[in-house]
Amino acid sequence: MKNAAARGRGIRAIGLSLLAGAGLWAGMGLASAETALLNVSYDPTRELYREINAAFAEDWKAKTGETITVRASHGGSGAQARTVIDGVDADVVTLGIPSDIDAIARLTRKIPEDWRSKLPNTATPYTSTVVFLVRKGNPKGVKDWADLVKPDVKVITPNPKTSAGGRWNFLAAWGYAYNQDKDAAKADAFVGQVYKNVPVLDTGARGSTVTFAQRGLGDVLPTWENEAYLVLQEFGADKFDIVSPPSSIYAEPPVALVAANAERKGTTKAAQAYLDFLYTDRAQAIFAKHHYRPIKREAAARADLAQLPEIKLFKIEDLQGSWDEIQKRNFDAGGLFDRLSRAGR
């Protein structure tokens, strides 16, 4: 009995010291916090913002002498917007598609309704487009959007309900078809055909890339231009080819200040500076380096620009109207995507 009691004390002592140690460790983690910004971003920008954030911290230190940390969170654009709506303390959002920031503005009022007019180029510091990633040698001969509906072509694309990349792909296919005959019904049907060839719908652009590149599923991955180049870098240029279609969509991943959050945290100045920084030559050069299309081409390195080929880009707003209408027509409950997947099953 005595022995057991002693053992019990021993166990308790170990338990207590473990507890204390872990508490101390956790406390240390919290104590080291300084000014920190949180950038809630979409899926493929992980590598980009790692570099941008480091550059901004350096710039901020040089200008103000203060140390700043920019934290980032990534995921499907819709899912990320949802976390901000539910209360993630984001200072800035840099999402994949305007309608996601609209949703935050509409549901929380933390972002002013006219956010697109607050920053240059309708709050879009860089643009991008959708290109095709195919297996080496392009065995299925995919050259243009029309090839995606061939019966033997398997298309990998993310779920447009949750992913901005998925929505741009969807809209790009629609825009291509619409530009052929200016017939919306035919364009709807064309998109339906494309999605009949889709075997996997991941929730984010990253999931789709992993499915295509790592898991070897599908023949073509319509994806963000930057994402396609990243795959070549990460998986080796000997496995894949990038095919730029003759025409594609003008994709605008916008940025905005989450005014209410920043104000409450007292970070408005730094957050605004962060967004302004995205328009500086230094940031623009970093965008080009990561294969995004900078809005100030003159700031980018020539070699980086040379990798971004001339593609005829169309704006979906010119074809379908405002972003409210685009979202409602295609992606809201009962919209085109819902109707297509119901019919296509």
Partner: peptide, 12 residues
């Protein structure tokens, strides 16, 4: 490391 620390904190 911060993930490990957070997981331990949560468990503790």
């Amino acid at each position: 490391w911060s993930a490990i620390r957070l997981t331990l904190t949560v468990a503790v």
